[in-house]
Design a protein around this nucleic acid. Structure first.
Ligand code: MN
Ligand code: MN
Ligand code: MN
Ligand code: MN
Lengths: 220, 220
DNA sequence: TCTAAAATTTAGTCTTGCCTAAATTATTTT
DNA sequence: AAAATAATTTAGGCAAGACTAAATTTTAGA
């Protein structure tokens, strides 16, 4: 049985929240999904009880995905990221506009549609935000990126991706020239506020942790 | 408030069933929507009670669309037909494959998406089946077509559209060369079974009423 | 360690949209 | 004009997925 739109959104969000290795808490899920914590508890109990179970759940300990859950999550994430890529490439959406549209389309496209856009795009590896696209056989490629916030004076790299879908931040970053594939150099680090001064395209900018923690880099 | 997917499907189906001028019956709706008649009654009572009302309803008399209902119906139909056109033109779908995909996508695309594909396609007038696409301001263009079943010996015309989404019929018609824009000539009419013998691309075919009632013609 | 705050779960409701079975109304047939 | 049949509506239920309020458990602070 195909997971409902709600289930798909839960699984996708849990995937993202557990990428760091630790379980996703009820509250974090509630915040990300804009659903009240009490409702989240109900839903995760249900998903953990399906056969096969989609989640591993222990009261008060948060949830992780089972392999069935992970597979379903990667399916949605693949849809989402292919759709974003394709909306940008073929319909001229800008990278700050695509997320909402993909959020709705991801649940209704067929596997045939998925194959057609993947082929039309030449099987892209990353979406417009630089995020890795799960492969057709639902494996997430290895991610060797580092958050910009972890770099220090004189370290250099190339921007790989921007995490999170905040349209305002994306527009701001585009204005500063902080887009995927752009080389970047750290000029200085301020230990008190964690600000980084960086140089991009000959211009320097001072970036707070709110920003540097969302920009991911390939070190060079 | 945006109509739900269910509501949109009801309105679209009612639009199509009332194109002939008479109200849509509960049973016809139930058959088209694959929903039990009892459920249809419940839903049409609800839709007739909304403010503004989407339907005009009198017990046992069937339903018609109010102007609000018609507008919402044309919005969905425009989405559907633009999507079909676009799936065929840009992703290589064949005309017998597009309907299902469009049926799901029609409910979730944004007005922005609608504008973008309409523009990308050059504001097409008809979908891949030759059906008229409602305009951006939600008017249905005048339809001056005649069913092939109404033509008689020696009358000629050009195929404008195929009604209904039966994929098997569409594939059959494509094999016979009975596709939109094809000139067609009636060779003979058999009054007993309503069969028409027609000539298309130098070949003659005998077509039953099941087929001739679904092919629409511009007389020449 | 005891307590206060925060996180989580339970219990009880609500809405949407569907279903079945039974009742009612309309339409045909005889 | 009755009787039989078909169409429609009513009544009662159910499943999904959300919410609020209250109870409980965990975590952190004094
Ligand atoms: Mn996104
Ligand atoms: Mn979503
Ligand atoms: Mn169609
Ligand atoms: Mn539909």
């Amino acid at each position: 049985m195909k997971p409902s739109t709600s289930t798909q959104d839960y699984l996708k969000t849990i995937y993202e929240l557990t990428e760091n290795g630790s379980p996703a808490s009820t509250n974090d899920l509630a915040r990300e999904l804009n659903i009240k914590p009490a409702s989240v508890t109900g839903m995760i109990q249900k998903l953990a009880g399906e056969k096969p179970a989609l989640l591993e759940y222990q009261k008060h300990q948060g949830v992780t995905l089972t392999s069935a859950g992970k597979k379903a999550a990667l399916e949605v994430i693949r849809h989402h990221r292919l759709l974003e890529t394709w909306l940008v490439q073929t319909l001229g959406y800008s990278w700050d506009e695509v997320h909402e549209e993909a959020e709705r389309l991801e649940h209704v496209i067929s596997e045939d549609f998925e194959r057609r856009i993947a082929a039309a795009l030449g099987h892209p590896l990353r979406d417009p935000h630089g995020e890795l696209i799960p492969t057709a056989d639902l494996k997430m490629p290895l991610d060797d990126s580092t958050p910009l916030s972890a770099l220090r004076k004189d370290q250099t790299g190339k921007i790989l991706s921007i995490k999170g879908a905040d349209a305002n931040l994306l527009r701001h970053l585009e204005e500063l020239g902080l887009t995927p594939n752009t080389p970047i150099e750290v000029i200085s680090y301020s230990p008190f506020d964690h600000n980084l001064t960086v140089k991009v395209n000959k211009k320097t900018h001072v970036l707070g942790l709110n920003i540097t923690s969302k920009i991911f880099i390939e070190e060079t």
